[in-house]
Amino acid sequence: MSIYFRAELYCRFWRNELKNIFIVGGDGFAREVYFHLQNLAECNKEIRFGGFLGHNGYGCKVDYKDVQHLYIGEVSEYTFRDNDYCIIGAGDSILRKKIYDDIKSLGGKFWTLIAKGIYLADSFIYGEANIFIPPFYSTVNIDIGDGNLCNGNVSIGHDCKIGNFNTFLPSSCILGNVRVGDYNSIGTNAIILPKAKIGNHNIICPLSVIYKGCGNNLYMFGNPAIKIGEVK
């Protein structure tokens, strides 16, 4: 076998092993994800950006502004291959779950974005389709489900257990032994104190402090945070 033939076989293998990462969604957050993915790709040669995919009109071509040339069409029209993976570029928890379900139904797979400069302990367990934007601070024995978004300067303490499709907005702080359910939004500079328990579908308003926890479908505001309304 000639050296040129061996080199060609290697190049074919290498191209097939590369992970093609698609960002599904639109608007500013998808472009932020693209920025972090590009930074990561500079040091991780196993990934490359495949393009932006829209979802039911969310992520139409005009939403991508200066990178609109990277928009390749609707996710429903794309046929996924074995080495294709998706990041969900949507900040809203409910929309993220809808996109997640639709990609699953199309046979797509997910890639968790752990942006450049983030280091996780060996005891940090996470599911699929999560996004960790730097800076991100975490310690040990943390268990996070699927589809969560930690959107910059988020802190999660030891022994926390977090469910699925939660959104942690910039500078939110989750202290040790906290339990968080599903579909919650933790506002900017909000603090969840140790051993608090958060239910499902809650909105914790910015600057609020949760002492013991809250139930389901609540707007919580203040220090200490109290119920100010219900999430419909």
Rank of each mutant, 00 (worst) to 15 (best):
S105C: 02
V154N: 13
Y78D: 01
I118G: 03
D82V: 08
S172M: 10
A129E: 02
T79W: 08
G145T: 09
A129R: 08
L95D: 01
V154C: 11
K161Y: 04
L120Q: 11
L175T: 13
F168H: 10
I174A: 09
P135Y: 12
D82Y: 05
I131T: 12
L149P: 09
I99E: 00
I103P: 00
T139V: 14
F132L: 14
Y78W: 05
K116V: 01
P134N: 06
C160H: 09
L95Q: 08
Y119W: 15
F132V: 07
R81C: 09
G145F: 10
N153C: 12
V154T: 11
I99M: 01
G152T: 02
S171V: 08
I72L: 01
G107M: 08
S105E: 03
Y85P: 03
Y126K: 13
I125C: 14
G91A: 01
C173R: 11
I162S: 08
D66G: 04
I87V: 11
I144T: 09
K97P: 07
V154K: 10
Y78G: 00
S171D: 14
S123M: 05
N130R: 14
E74I: 00
L70A: 05
I156T: 11
A90N: 05
Y126A: 12
K65C: 02
G89F: 02
I131D: 06
S123K: 05
I103V: 06
I87K: 08
I103R: 00
I133L: 14
G163V: 06
I174V: 15
N130E: 13
K97W: 01
G91R: 02
K116R: 12
P135R: 07
I133D: 08
V140Y: 14
W111V: 05
Y126P: 11
Y126Q: 11
G127K: 14
G157M: 09
